[in-house]
Design a binder for these strands. Structure first.
Length: 438
DNA sequence: TCTGGGGTCCTAGGACCC
DNA sequence: TCTGGGGTCCTAGGACCC
C-alpha cells in the first residue's frame, strides 16, 4: 500500500475530465469504420467544429469552411452534428465517473469535475488508493466503456484541475500537487486560464501582468484594489486554495432558455423577422412545457448586419409557456424597435424568470379566460408533436421562418449524397395552419 | 476565425422604502 | 418640506464559458 497523495499536497483532490475532440470521437465510436480517417463535424453550419487528429494533421482547424477543408484534404469526411447522440455519451461519461465518487459536476457536454477526496477508494481503511491511482482507473474505465479518449487533470481545485487537463492532450494525464503549481504557471499566459477572457487579459496586461505566475504572486491588497470578484477567486485558486465549489445539482434547473438563429441572406423584411422570432418562441415554449415550467419574462433581439443589437426585455402579466401569450406581449415592442431600412442577420429570444408550473398563479389583471383557451390548443399541439414529431404543427406566424429553413436545408445538403434530410425536417412541409398571431 | 448557438454569473445604477 | 443614511429589489449590460 502506497499513499503518495499526502494531505499537504492534496488538501482536496479535484479532477477535471475533458473529452478529446469529443463530437468527432462520438461519431467514430459509433462507426468504427471512420477510425483513422480525417473526420470533421459541423456540416450544418458549414464550418468545422470538431476535428479528428488526422483532420488536424491535414491542416484543418476550427472554423474552417467546407470548401477550404476539401481543398486541403480531399478525402475529409464532414458530418452534421448530432447533439442528441453526444448528450447520450456525456451521460454515460458522468455515470462512469460517479462509480468512483458522488461529487461530480456535469460541467458541459464533454467535461466534468469530480472531487476524489472522499472517494470510497481513497478512504478504505486497508489498501487505499492514491488519488492518482483512482484517476488513472477512471481514465481507463472511460476508454474501455466508451471507446473515446479523455484528458484528465488532477489538482487541488477546479482552476488548477482545468490547467492540468489541458496541459497534455489528447489522452493526457497530468497531476499538479500544491507545491508544483508555480512550475506550471511560470510560462502560462494569463489569458489561458479558465475564466480570464480577452477583456481581462488586456486589462491585466496594462497592469504589467503577462504570465499566470505574475498574477498568482501579487499580494492580496493589490488584488483587492485592482480586480473584481471573479478574478479574485481565480487568484485564490492559483495559489492553491479552494474557493470554487463543485455544483452537483445537475443541469436540469436551468435559469433561462434561449433560441436564436442567423439567417442568410440578411433580411429587411419585418414579417420575415417576426416569423423568425415566432418560431423561436414556439421552440422555447415546447422546451419549457416538457419540463412543466413557465416564464415570467421574455427578452428578444434583432441583430443587424453590422452586428448591432436591438432588443429589450418584456415582463409578462402571468407566468406562461404559451407562445401566443408571449408573442402578444412582444409584438408591440418589436414594432417599435424594428427599423425598416436596416438589414438583419439574426433574431433571438430568451425566456427567463422561470417557474415551476405547480406554483403558477394568475394575477388579478391577467386575462385568465384567455390563458385557459390557449392552454387547450397548446396541449393539443404537444400531443401531436409527441406522436408525429416536433414541427408538425406550429403557429401561422412561424410559417415563413419554417419555409426559409426548409430551403436552407435543401441548399446545404445539396451535393452531399451521404446526407439526407431528416424526417423532422421533411415534416416541416406538413402544415396545420393555426392562423396569424399579431 | 471577422463572428453559431446556448448558457451562467457579476456589477453598477435606479427605484422604492424606512 | 427638505435632508441624510441605509436597505432591498430589479434591470441592463458586460464578460466569460463550451
Amino acid at each position: 500500500m502506497t499513499i503518495r497523495s499526502s494531505s499537504t499536497e492534496f488538501p482536496r483532490a479535484i479532477m477535471h475530465v475533458d473529452g478529446d475532440s469529443f463530437f468527432v470521437s462520438c461519431e467514430i465510436a459509433r462507426r468504427p469504420g471512420l477510425r483513422g480517417k480525417p473526420v470533421v463535424t459541423g456540416l450544418e453550419r458549414g464550418i468545422a467544429s470538431a476535428m479528428s487528429p488526422e483532420a488536424k494533421k491535414a491542416g484543418i482547424h476550427r472554423g474552417m469552411r467546407i470548401g477550404d477543408m476539401r481543398r486541403v484534404c480531399p478525402n475529409v469526411v464532414i458530418l452534421p452534428s448530432d447533439y442528441t447522440m453526444y448528450a447520450q455519451y456525456a451521460r454515460r461519461m458522468y455515470s462512469i465517473v460517479r462509480k468512483y465518487t458522488d461529487v461530480v459536476e456535469e460541467y458541459s457536454i464533454d467535461e466534468c469535475f469530480a472531487d476524489l477526496t472522499h472517494s470510497p477508494l481513497a478512504t478504505t481503511a486497508t489498501g487505499a488508493c492514491s488519488y492518482e491511482e483512482i484517476a488513472r482507473q477512471i481514465q481507463a474505465d472511460l476508454f474501455d466503456s466508451l471507446g473515446i479518449t479523455f484528458s484528465l487533470g488532477l489538482s487541488v481545485n477546479k482552476v488548477m484541475a482545468k490547467v492540468a487537463s489541458k496541459w497534455n492532450k489528447p489522452n493526457g494525464f497530468t497531476v499538479i500537487g500544491r507545491s508544483s503549481i508555480p512550475d506550471y504557471l511560470k510560462a502560462l499566459p494569463v489569458g489561458k486560464i479558465w475564466g480570464i477572457g480577452s477583456s481581462t487579459t488586456m486589462y491585466l496586461k496594462k497592469l504589467g501582468i503577462e504570465t499566470t505566475l505574475d498574477l498568482a504572486t501579487k499580494d492580496h491588497s493589490w488584488i483587492d484594489d485592482h480586480c473584481d470578484l471573479p478574478v479574485a477567486r481565480i487568484y485564490e485558486e492559483l495559489r492553491g486554495n479552494k474557493v470554487l465549489e463543485l455544483s452537483t445539482d445537475g443541469h436540469d434547473d436551468y435559469a433561462s432558455v434561449q433560441r436564436t438563429q442567423t439567417f442568410r441572406p440578411p433580411s429587411g423584411d419585418r414579417e420575415f423577422c417576426w416569423s423568425q422570432l415566432s418560431q423561436h418562441v414556439e421552440d422555447a415554449c415546447i422546451y419549457l412545457r416538457k419540463d412543466m415550467r413557465t416564464a415570467t419574462k421574455v427578452s428578444f433581439f434583432l441583430k443587424t448586419q453590422d452586428f448591432e443589437y436591438l432588443g429589450e426585455e418584456v415582463s409578462l402579466p402571468d407566468a406562461t409557456a404559451e407562445p401566443q401569450e408571449l408573442l402578444r406581449a412582444v409584438r408591440p415592442r418589436f414594432d417599435v424597435l424594428f427599423v425598416p431600412r436596416l438589414q438583419y442577420r439574426a433574431t433571438g429570444i430568451t425566456l427567463h424568470g422561470l417557474r415551476s408550473r405547480k406554483i403558477r398563479t394568475v394575477s388579478l389583471f391577467g386575462d385568465s379566460a384567455h390563458l385557459e383557451k390557449a392552454s387547450g390548443v397548446t396541449r393539443a399541439i404537444d400531443r401531436l408533436a409527441e406522436k408525429f414529431g416536433r414541427g408538425v404543427v406550429f403557429l401561422g406566424s412561424s410559417l415563413r421562418a419554417l419555409r426559409h429553413d426548409a430551403r436552407e436545408d435543401a441548399r446545404l445538403h445539396a451535393g452531399h449524397g451521404r446526407i439526407r434530410m431528416s424526417t423532422e425536417q421533411r415534416k416541416h412541409f406538413d402544415v396545420i395552419y393555426l392562423g396569424e398571431v399579431r
